[in-house]
């Protein structure tokens, strides 16, 4: 097992280096970070040269890349065009994004897989038809539409229904109320009000993510379960005289678990960069916002760090998927 993990890590490292190189090419081609500065009038040449030097723009491509890479490996992600530490900004946004996506993903998986299993076991029942149609529709709808619908339609009507138009229960903007805990509002300071405030903000974006994600898992779990339920070994299990619960859980589900767990762990890797639209619709200051800012303002170090964090997450969870697969399936030699 240990050597298997080491082997997989060794394969992943060159992949990450290559990915970082491609990301660097992309970032270099994003544009000129000092465009604004250059087009302004009355900016002394010396100041532009100074900025160029600070961002390393005056060096040739490969020198720039290796300089960035060696710093990054040592944990120094450089500074933004506004001369702030990149890592501070990324880590703050990462925290905001994780608060949203991790809980949403766990909910989606649990709901989706449960629905998928019930659908497969009761194939062609009214539940199956309903779940299949419902998840197909949700699966096909754009995030844009689901999120906007919840924000502009459901939230407003629900808040009105609850008679809370002035102080809405479901908040649609940001991850927390601005200036929530101040000297003038000491009752808002503390863990409980802060948590409540967060939950009222997180409800709708989480619901958006769950609605569009669970449907995919429901479809996948259903298809996988149908396959294992029709497998020869399930027929053997029935022929032994086992009760249906045992046949479904110990035989069909245990085998369906292998692909489901693999897919879920791979998906976890894509979460950080996967909620950009939801974050934007609900105006959270997460990784999505950082990306939009870094691209529009052409902030090379910020963008590189963004790529690095998301790519590492993808590679890491691919590794987790491989390991879980090997743990769950004895046919894989470690």
């Amino acid at each position: 097992m240990f050597s298997f993990i080491v082997r997989r890590i060794l394969v992943s490292i060159p992949l990450l280096f290559l990915a970082s190189f491609i990301a660097f090419i992309l970032v270099v081609n994003t544009g000129d970070p000092l465009e604004d500065l250059r087009t302004k009038i009355n900016v002394p040449k010396g100041q532009i040269a100074l900025q160029e030097h600070r961002l390393g723009l005056d060096k040739p491509f490969f020198e720039r890349y290796f300089s960035w890479l060696t710093h990054a490996i040592h944990g120094d992600w450089g500074r933004t065009i506004k001369d702030k530490a990149v890592w501070d900004q990324i880590s703050r946004s990462l925290g905001v994004t994780l608060k949203l996506v991790v809980f949403a993903e766990i909910c989606s998986v649990l709901i989706g897989v449960t629905i998928g299993i019930i659908s497969a076991v009761k194939q062609y029942s009214w539940f199956d038809h309903g779940a299949t149609t419902g998840s197909f529709l949700l699966y096909s709808l754009p995030v844009l539409a689901v999120g906007s619908f919840l924000k502009f339609f459901l939230a407003i009507r629900l808040n009105r229904l609850l008679g809370r138009e002035k102080n809405p229960l479901l908040k649609t903007i940001g991850e927390s109320t601005a200036n929530f805990c101040t000297v003038r509002k000491p009752q808002n300071c503390g863990l409980i009000p802060a948590t409540t405030d967060f939950l009222t903000h997180a409800a709708l974006p989480t619901l958006t993510l769950v609605l569009i994600t669970f449907a995919g898992y429901a479809r996948f779990a259903r298809a996988t379960m149908l396959e294992t339920l029709n497998a020869d070994y399930v027929r053997t299990a029935r022929a032994k005289g086992l009760d249906e619960k045992r046949v479904i859980l110990k035989h069909a589900f245990r085998n369906a678990l292998i692909p489901v767990v693999t897919v879920v762990s791979i998906d976890f890797g894509g979460l950080i960069g996967g909620a950009i639209l939801t974050e934007t619709i609900f105006e959270w200051k997460g990784m999505g916002r950082v990306l939009v800012d870094a691209v529009t303002k052409v902030d090379p170090n910020l963008l590189l760090c963004w790529f690095a964090v998301t790519a590492i997450a993808v590679v890491l969870f691919n590794l987790v998927a491989d390991i879980l697969y090997a743990v769950l399936d004895p046919r894989i030699r470690l």
Binding site: A19, I22, A23, N29, L291, L303, W306, F307, T310
Partner: peptide
């Protein structure tokens, strides 16, 4: 296939956004 894996590691919305900016 390693090349395919590599391309899958890079988040595509971000990559396209970066290229499209210029």
């Amino acid at each position: 296939m390693r090349f395919t894996d590599l391309m899958l590691v890079i988040p595509y919305l971000a990559a396209v956004a970066a290229l499209q900016r210029n």
